[in-house]
Amino acid sequence: MSKVEQARQKKSKKKMKRFFFRSIILIVLLAALVFALVSNLTKDKAAIGVGDEAPSFQLKQINNDGQPLHLDELKGKGIMLNFWATFCKPCEQEMPYMESLYPKYKEQGVEIVAVSVDFTELVIEQFVERHNLTFPILHDNTEQVRDLYNVGPLPTTYFINAEGEVVELVSGQLTLEDLEGYLQQIVPKE
């Protein structure tokens, strides 16, 4: 190998090294930038989101003789987990839809669980009586579960499949069609 060739090889080697060094640094910086922008856009989302496993909890039921309900008891079923309060108007409006679809989907293996974050039990009891609700109504009086799911605005509804994974997360009021669509998604497959 001649000296000229050696020098040329050395030069191109150096050039490659420089190219890789610069590219890597630029890529890392670009990645950081993208991370910042994406995080900034999604920062207001709840802690438990679509694709996450729904964390378990246990709460007292307001109806059904006040039995405690543990989410694990519903393993193998699709679960619609609804956070609501009596003073919340949109919550009140979607309750009849839930009640009307409940019997049909219960047969197909879907359970509706509505967690009220109200301060007092009496208002929930009277609300349940007024609307003749038959699906389990739970009272999260210490807001432990609300904190666990990091629920902000009410109503917020999680649709959880038989495997315990959150399939849909809806913030705000549901229409009857939407509700039916989501419930179909979490019907357990035979």
């Binding site: 009596t86 003073f87 009496l122």
Partner: peptide
Amino acid sequence: TIDQYFADYYLDNGIPRSQSDHP
């Protein structure tokens, strides 16, 4: 008997409601 309780009472188009659960 308490038939209805409104923690934070207001009239919503003539219908009594509670704005929040804070008394």
